[in-house]
């Protein structure tokens, strides 16, 4: 472990992951400092989601190490649980507990994992649900909510654990366009609070405007890792340029349209 690693919230060294013969991640190296908002972009199948799932130990890496606050995350269930309680995750498919109300969803892990009192759990739930605009829905079951509402509750649920890092796995991909904005706004606000976030997303404009660093992944490699304006407007790698060309073209057309009135 290098000295650089010690100062980072999460650092990943030499991480590889294969499913059978299919290698999804190849020797990934990167580190996240406190307060960074990192967006990972790339085409489908490039390994972005797998990387995020490895970070949260939902997938077992084939090789490599993950450090949390300078300490290696060991392969013991108890350690993994404790690590996960400090690194939250928001899923594409929300994964709210279908058998519980919104309030219970937010309180369950706070009482059973962090062993906080019911009162504390309730206060945290209300505070965080308020911040995502879902407090009035505490009595609803997930099946009674729309996708955008579910995702906002899922974010609140993760926030109730007071996580040090929050991972987002394509949080808006399962939403219809109207609801995407709501969820992105919530995430934007979160980014401004200084929470460390790693976001896998297809929302290029969001990545450009909100992230402090953008990572482009392709075929299991990190191809480019740069501040968003550098990555979006002067990408060094030809593959990055190719991937971003469509997005950039759309953007130029928009700007031209505005310029031409």
């Amino acid at each position: 472990m290098s000295e650089k690693t010690a100062a980072k919230v999460i650092s990943i060294e030499n991480l590889s992951k294969s499913f059978g013969d299919h290698q999804v991640l190849r020797k990934i190296d990167f580190a996240v400092a406190k307060g960074e908002v990192i967006c990972i972009v790339g085409s489908s199948g490039s390994g972005k989601s797998t990387l995020l799932r490895c970070i949260n130990k939902l997938e077992q890496q084939t090789d490599g190490k993950i450090y949390f606050n300078g300490k290696e995350v060991e392969e013991k269930q108890r350690e993994i649980n404790e690590y996960r309680s400090r690194v939250g995750m928001v899923f594409q498919s929300f994964n709210l507990f279908e058998n519980m109300t919104v309030l219970k969803n937010c309180m369950l892990a706070v009482t059973t994992v962090l062993h906080e009192s019911k009162k504390e759990a309730f206060e945290r739930a209300i505070k965080n649900l308020k911040s995502v605009g879902m407090a009035p829905y505490i009595n609803a079951y997930p099946s009674q909510l729309s996708g955008g509402q579910k995702q906002r509750v899922a974010i609140a649920r993760a926030l109730c654990m007071n996580p040090e890092v929050l991972l987002f796995d394509e949080p808006t991909s399962a939403l219809d366009p109207e609801m995407v904005g709501d969820v992105l706004n919530v995430m934007k606000e979160l980014a401004h609070t200084g929470l460390t976030m790693i976001i896998v997303t297809h929302e290029m404009a969001f990545a450009r405007d909100v992230s402090t660093r953008t990572i482009f992944m392709d075929r299991g490699y990190i191809v480019e890792d740069a501040p968003p304006h550098e990555l979006f407007y002067s990408p060094k790698n030809p593959r990055t340029r190719e991937f971003l060309s469509r997005f950039l073209k759309d953007q130029t057309e928009k700007t031209e349209a505005v310029a031409n009135g």
């Binding site: 108890r78 649980n81 929300f94 994964n95 709210l96 892990a109 654990m161």
Partner: peptide, 18 residues
């Protein structure tokens, strides 16, 4: 039961038993 339900719980640090 959808696999995501388990993952949702695990991601909050809940043990497999819980």
């Amino acid at each position: 039961v959808d696999k995501g339900q388990k993952e949702g719980a695990w991601s909050l640090g809940m043990s497999p038993m819980l």
